[in-house]
Design a binder for these strands. Structure first.
Length: 200
DNA sequence: CTTACGATTCCC
DNA sequence: GGAATCGTAAGG
């Protein structure tokens, strides 16, 4: 399969309809592809965090369904985009319908459209790592905002999809989640070992 | 309507 | 170390 076709061939919904932690691990190495104005911006997922559907005080679903988080309670394989501290964050919905687990995409290794990513950033970016080594940064670089909340990431025609891993052998490191105050001790952050695009 | 609050980023 | 940032939820 050519590279071009590979990046337009998203994962099936079955992939996402599993335990949140399992989806988080398996997402490492997968390619996030954003289509904007006939251009493709893409990156390999190198850092994620799981937010569990039950008894996880740090999860947005913990307080029950609201207008903001309702997509979490729907089908797996959809995007959940929210804004915090003036920045956007991208999540992928996991688990069968009605069970509100999700995976936060925290960092990417840029694959395609790197010049465009630089243009999309508000600040001038020198090092390539700074383009996508944080949840807010990668959303800026890929132009992901609240308009992309609730997008079907498994539909080939979507402006945002997730494609399969290239199959490269990776080591996975598990740590505590970062940047949160509640349930911060849970070992729910997964990163690709040694990858330089993992956030600091 | 008002207010408090972050799953962040950037600058000093 | 601290300011900027802004949509959301909850309370008056």
């Amino acid at each position: 399969m050519t590279k071009e076709n590979l990046y337009r061939n998203p994962l099936n919904r079955d992939f996402f309809e599993r335990k949140t932690e399992e989806v988080a691990r398996q997402l490492l190495g997968c390619i996030l592809v954003r289509e904007v104005e006939n251009s493709l911006l893409s990156g390999r997922i190198v850092e994620v965090e799981a937010y569990l559907p039950d008894g996880d005080p740090a999860a947005h679903a913990f307080i029950g369904q609201t207008l903001r988080n309702k997509v979490l309670f729907g089908q797996a394989g959809f995007s959940y985009v929210f804004r915090i501290h003036g920045q956007n964050c991208l999540n992928v919905v996991a688990e069968p319908e009605g069970i509100p687990g999700c995976v936060l995409i925290r960092a990417l290794e840029p694959v395609g459209g790197i010049d465009l990513m630089r243009n999309n950033r508000k600040r001038r970016v020198e090092r390539e790592e700074e383009l996508t080594n944080g949840p807010g940064k990668l959303c800026q670089s890929l132009r992901i905002d609240l308009n992309l909340n609730g997008v079907d990431l498994t539909y080939p025609g979507s402006p945002l999809i997730v494609c399969g891993s290239d199959g490269a052998d990776i080591g996975v490191v598990v740590t505590r989640r970062v940047g949160i105050t509640k349930a911060a001790d849970e070992q729910l952050r997964f990163t690709i070992k040694g990858n330089r695009f993992v956030s600091k």
